[in-house]
Nucleic acid binder design. Structure first.
Length: 104
DNA sequence: GCCATGGCTAGTA
DNA sequence: GCCATGGCTAGTA
């Protein structure tokens, strides 16, 4: 695992229950602000093995970004059970539920 | 080559 | 809607 990947994994692992981070925020905190899509790849390939709380990652608009219907339902259900609220338009208020790890 | 992004624009009300 | 982007566990939650 490369240092960037390690950072991403540890950041995702550190997201507390009931809070969410965006792909871009995670990439930025891992040291590469424009590598949001790489965060996606890591989520894809490592969610299981590393037991990542993958459901606590959303896009910059506060939306669930998963294409697969079944998986997005799981994500929504998990978040709601942790106390995250969805607005009527289906987005999460990042001002309230967004998580900012301590900067380096 | 892939990808569950993100930020900026176009075209419209 | 378009397209620059970047790191790499490609049996996907």
């Amino acid at each position: 695992m490369t240092p960037f990947t390690q950072n991403v994994v540890s950041i995702i692992t550190s997201i507390p229950e009931g809070r969410v981070m965006t792909y871009g925020q995670i990439a930025a905190h891992a040291g590469s602000p424009r590598a949001a899509r790489q965060v996606v790849r890591i989520l894809h390939s490592m969610s299981r093995k590393e037991r990542l709380p993958w459901h606590r990652v959303v896009n910059a608009k506060g939306e669930i970004a998963i294409p697969d219907e079944h998986s997005r339902l799981i994500q929504e259900t998990e978040l709601i059970s942790e106390g995250v609220e969805f607005k009527l338009d289906g987005t999460i208020d990042l001002e309230i539920f967004g998580y900012q790890p301590e900067p380096e």
